[in-house]
């Protein structure tokens, strides 16, 4: 080897490998882009607030049996226990006579100063306990968000990758299919499909979830397709192709990892938004049965009292607050992610 090939001095960069690993362990672990995202989210006060809120809901969901235990061991925890069948909602603090939680948890007496269970946040008509519904409803919210968003994202990523990478008639057909779905207003389409599915699947979380997936994946497909179209022209993709990589390798190793971030932003925003849509369907009485631990379903109890909400405010305020906070948490994180990925968008909507 001649001298000229050795002429570049790497002096500007620290040489010791150990130093480097200590210096940027996060980057070594997950790569520079992820490291930047994680650092960005963890240093932005707004997104930290969002993460704290989301973590709070995860903790509430995880410890729901300690916060409000079900009335007995065989109780279906997705059903709100009823204290009788009276139509008149009871105010917060009234006595819990029938189907009260089995035992008094350790936090209850110190915090409320009571020896026996009361309806902490009141009851809805039909004597459904709102406190139980809101606490256990966080499980439903996380599960719905997870199922619907992940399923739609997986379908959307698959379709978007195929359409963007192969182009041509594959792209034409897939995008026309997407347009058929987009032609329906999202909520109206989901509403109609869910009400068709209810008689077939019975009242559970599934009709509304499936409807939201069917009308939700198109957004991911379109977004990702565009990013893949841009990414696949990059030189490093051509380089891998020149090296002999096959389509599978190109998509999974080079194109998708570099095109996925905008999709991740939408995914995090949707985690909140989907729960709101699900709540909207529940509020309209489509999907879960009456008494299911779902925030939207609890709010729907207030429908009959729309003119007397000054008296029965608790039916709408507590589950409404839960919905608001949950949506806010994911939105804060999603907005922060978007700002990190595209600083030009900061502050815009």
């Amino acid at each position: 080897m001649t001298a000229s090939t050795k002429s570049v001095s790497p002096a500007t960069i620290p040489l010791n490998e150990q130093d480097l690993q200590e210096q940027r362990w996060l980057e070594r672990l997950v790569g520079p882009e992820w490291a930047r995202l994680i650092k960005g989210v963890l240093t932005n006060p707004l997104s930290v607030t969002g993460l704290v809120i989301i973590l709070g809901f995860i903790l509430i969901a995880a410890f729901a049996p300690i916060i409000v235990p079900p009335p007995n061991a065989t109780w279906d925890t997705t059903l709100i226990p009823r204290d009788g069948f009276g139509p008149e909602p009871k105010a917060p603090g009234s006595e819990w006579v029938r189907n009260a939680p089995g035992e008094i948890p350790f936090w209850y007496t110190p915090l409320t100063g009571r020896e026996e269970w009361v309806h902490l946040w009141g009851t809805a008509s039909g004597q459904y306990d709102i406190f139980y519904g809101v606490i256990w409803g966080s499980r439903t919210a996380l599960m719905i968000g997870g199922i619907v968003v992940l399923s739609s994202a997986i379908i959307g990523i698959f379709v978007g990758s195929l359409a963007g990478y192969y182009g041509g008639w594959v792209d034409e057909i897939l995008m026309r299919v997407v347009e058929v779905f987009i032609a329906f207003p999202f909520l109206v389409g989901a509403l109609i499909l869910a009400s068709i599915l209810v008689p077939k699947l019975g009242r559970s979380i599934w009709p509304a979830s499936i409807a939201l997936i069917v009308f939700g994946w198109t957004g991911y497909a379109r977004l990702l397709r565009g990013d893949i179209l841009a990414t696949k022209e990059r030189d490093y993709v051509q380089a891998a192709q020149a090296a002999g990589a096959n389509d599978f390798h190109l998509i999974l190793r080079h194109i998708l990892p570099n095109a996925i971030f905008p999709t991740l932003v939408v995914l995090s925003l949707d985690m909140g938004a989907i729960v709101l849509s699900f709540a909207a369907l529940s509020f309209l009485g489509i999907g879960v049965q009456e008494g299911y631990t779902d925030w939207g379903q609890i709010v729907s109890f207030a429908r009959s009292y729309i003119f007397s909400l000054d008296r029965y405010w608790f039916i709408i305020v507590y589950p409404g607050l839960a919905l608001l906070l949950y949506g806010l948490g994911w939105n804060l994180v999603g907005d922060a992610l978007r700002d990190i990925l595209d600083p030009k968008l900061r502050g815009k909507r």
């Binding site: 520079p32 030189d235 051509q238 020149a242 090296a243 002999g244 990589a245 190793r253 570099n258």
Partner: peptide
Amino acid sequence: RKQRRRMQMIFQDPYSSLNPR
């Protein structure tokens, strides 16, 4: 694809020819 190992390419823009991830 098998033959590609015998012929390779060096690209113009060193900033876009390396996968940043």
